[in-house]
């Protein structure tokens, strides 16, 4: 065996160790979560997922309020963040002068680097009063006929948390969408223009249709972040395990109940139930990712497979 073969082999083995390590870590986390939540899994069974009582004193645990809170806040955050994020990305790539685009893009990337506890603090002192004094009274007055915008107005609650999450994930969507839109070959835009398309038409039906896989990817990244966000949400969602249709009402999410109650979980079943919450969060994150990936494939699968050909 020559010197080259040996070094190549060692290099290959060493490299192979890295992805295997990742697999082992994921499997290890999953195993640990299942193992530690066994008592709770035994006691509550599948009912854990659809029972809405969370009563540590009586050792009665159901995860539904948290699942609900996580899903609602993440979805509302996406609804707010997607149009703003994609719109901003389009503006930065297609319309803004190069200098403006560069400055804003840098700021956006900085925004993504701000620790979420700072967002949370800002949320308590700025966003929550703003929601209480301006946004929620407005929504209640003009859209109060919808059950979403009824009930007492505390400022804190699911709507504030959703807005907070939207602010946190917008930079991700802008950043990735910007790259994706900029990567669409110029000649496709030219082709649309050559057929007499206006700028808006070239953008909306050519550029976005080329970029949709990438933009969906950005949205999934953002959704993952929203589902897992702890600090900023915990600080302003109200931390009340109840299921209310109104976005004004306080709620709770999977991630925040773990962070909030871990220190208080002073008997085994409580701890086990919290770990099962972590397991649920883990699975929700994985399922969302799988669904999203399937969605991307269904939108682009045939297309990209043929494009490669």
């Amino acid at each position: 065996m020559s010197r080259h073969d040996t070094s190549d082999l060692i290099f290959r083995r060493v490299l192979a160790a890295f992805p295997i390590t990742v697999l082992i870590i994921v499997a290890g986390i999953f195993f640990e979560l299942v193992y530690s939540s066994l008592p709770s899994l035994h006691k509550f069974g599948i009912g854990f997922l659809y029972h809405s009582i969370w009563n540590p004193v009586e050792e009665n645990f159901g995860a539904l309020p948290f699942i609900y809170g996580t899903c609602v806040t993440s979805l509302v955050a996406l609804l707010l963040a997607i149009p703003i994020g994609v719109g901003a990305a389009i503006y930065l790539v297609e319309y803004a002068p190069v200098k403006v685009s560069r400055v804003i893009s840098t700021l956006v990337d900085l925004l993504a680097a701000i620790p979420s506890v700072i967002y949370g603090l800002w949320g308590i002192f700025v966003l929550v009063p703003f929601m209480r004094n301006v946004v929620q009274p407005f929504l209640g007055k003009y859209f109060g006929f919808l059950p979403l915008f009824q009930g007492p107005n505390y400022g804190i609650g699911m709507l504030a948390a959703s807005v907070m999450l939207a602010i946190i994930i917008v930079p991700f969507i802008i950043s990735v969408s910007r790259e994706v839109i900029a990567a669409v070959p110029f000649v496709y835009k030219e082709s649309a223009y050559a057929l007499g398309a206006t700028r808006w038409e070239a953008l909306s039906n050519i550029v976005l249709s080329y970029g949709k896989a990438g933009i969906l990817g950005a949205v999934i990244l953002a959704l993952g972040r929203a589902i897992g966000e702890v600090m900023a949400v915990t600080m302003i969602i109200g931390n009340d395990p109840k299921i209310a249709l109104s976005l004004f009402s306080p709620g709770y999410t999977l991630a925040s109940v773990i962070a909030n109650e871990f220190a208080e979980a002073d008997f085994p079943m409580y701890l086990s139930a919290l770990i099962e919450i972590a397991l649920v969060l883990f699975l929700v994150a994985i399922i969302v990712n799988i669904l999203a990936r399937l969605l991307i494939w269904s939108v682009t699968g045939a297309q990209s497979a043929e494009a490669v050909k």
Partner: peptide, 26 residues
């Protein structure tokens, strides 16, 4: 004044929609 480019640039749509594109946008 129509134009055809060096690289063929079919839009990621059906054959029909590609040809109809210029008509649909007006």
């Amino acid at each position: 004044v129509g134009m055809v480019f060096q690289k063929s640039t079919p839009f990621p749509k059906s054959i029909y929609d590609n040809v109809a594109y210029g008509l649909k946008i007006i």
